[in-house]
């Protein structure tokens, strides 16, 4: 039976939640699934992925000197594992890690790859993805001997279908470094949830008036499980918040269940990064702001009045849930 491999992504030793939607997508195709785990715990992957129908976990060891994380070495090891296990279709996530790994694997195999897929048809090698700043949706056919897909975060809702999985391992033969060496990975302590994977995003724009006022957004986000704070380009360009918080054409493209835009007028470029959100709620004092015509709920109101009230409401609903 044809097997499809999932490229599993970890964060701080745990399987990221976004992998479960990816497993659900492959399980629904009726094909057998094999999860690739590189230099991380296959036991943790097995425990996390069995509930989602993954029958096989392959622990890939990408050795050699140097760092545990090395996208060039990992890509070579994954391509070798595909060869070893007879895998022709590989599905990964369109996360920063996926953006670094999937194109390297595709380049090495000279295989077609589509990133940021909204839908994937594994029988016909067809995908849907957005093109031209989210203004169009393209149906694309891939041809070749291998097929690689990068799924957009939250594109498929995870659904449980428990099975028992077996564990295999694959040790890649360390080759030369190919003139590429990861010296170190540095974190500036940004432990915050990655925007692209957040269920709820509360974003601020020009209407926030200062970086200090983003505290109002963080206060609300803390009270919602899986919520992150984003920003419009204006807020980033004014130096209020760092670039990594920017949602839009030249920032992060997000796909949360709910996107709450506070003081954001809603430029075409901002929409390019968030228009596929499940629900959009907008707060703006300007009744003519473009975003009010392209959302699900809006209030023409001052965010400085509404957000403290929302914080109170969320606190109350949190304590009543306990």
């Amino acid at each position: 039976m044809e097997k499809v491999a999932l490229l599993i992504e970890f964060k701080a030793g745990r399987v990221k939640k976004a992998n479960f939607g990816m497993a659900t997508l492959v399980r629904r195709s009726g094909k057998a699934m094999c999860a690739f785990v590189v230099n991380d715990s296959a036991a943790e992957a097995q425990a996390a992925l069995e509930p989602y129908g993954v029958q096989q976990v392959v622990a890939i060891r990408s050795g050699g000197p140097g760092a545990a994380w090395d996208p060039a070495r990992w890509a070579r090891a994954i391509a070798a594992a595909m060869d070893r296990f007879g895998i022709t279709q590989l599905v990964g996530l369109t996360t920063p890690q996926g953006r670094d790994l999937l194109p390297r694997i595709a380049a090495q195999l000279d295989a077609p790859l589509i990133m940021d897929c909204l839908e994937v048809d594994l029988d016909r090698q067809m995908v849907k993805t957005s093109r031209y700043s989210g203004k169009t949706v393209a149906t694309i056919r891939l041809s070749g001997r291998h097929f690689i897909y990068g799924l957009r975060g939250n594109a498929v809702e995870a659904q449980k279908a428990p099975v028992a999985a077996e564990r295999l391992s694959f040790d890649d033969t360390p080759g030369g470094d190919g003139g590429f060496e990861v010296l170190e990975t540095r974190s500036d302590g940004g432990e915050a949830l990655n925007l692209a994977e957040a269920d709820v995003i509360i974003s601020g724009g020009r209407g926030m008036k200062s970086g200090e006022n983003f505290r109002l957004l963080f206060d609300c986000a803390r009270l919602i499980n899986g919520a992150a704070v984003g920003a419009s380009r204006v807020a980033v360009d004014l130096g209020w918040v760092p670039y990594r918080m920017q949602v839009g054409q030249t920032g992060v493209k997000v796909n949360p269940k709910v996107y709450i835009a506070c003081g954001i007028s809603g430029s075409v470029q901002h929409f390019a990064g968030m228009k596929s959100s499940g629900m959009i709620i907008a707060l703006n004092t300007d009744p003519n702001a473009a975003i009010l015509a392209h959302c699900d709920y809006y209030a023409v109101a001052d965010l400085f009045d509404v957000l403290p009230e929302l914080k109170r409401q969320l606190t109350a609903s949190m304590s009543s849930a306990e």
Partner: peptide, 14 residues
């Protein structure tokens, strides 16, 4: 190279 949440990889390439 910038990754998520402000982390960076420092890489040397020939």
């Amino acid at each position: 190279c910038e990754k998520e949440s402000g982390a960076v990889d420092v890489i040397r390439m020939g």
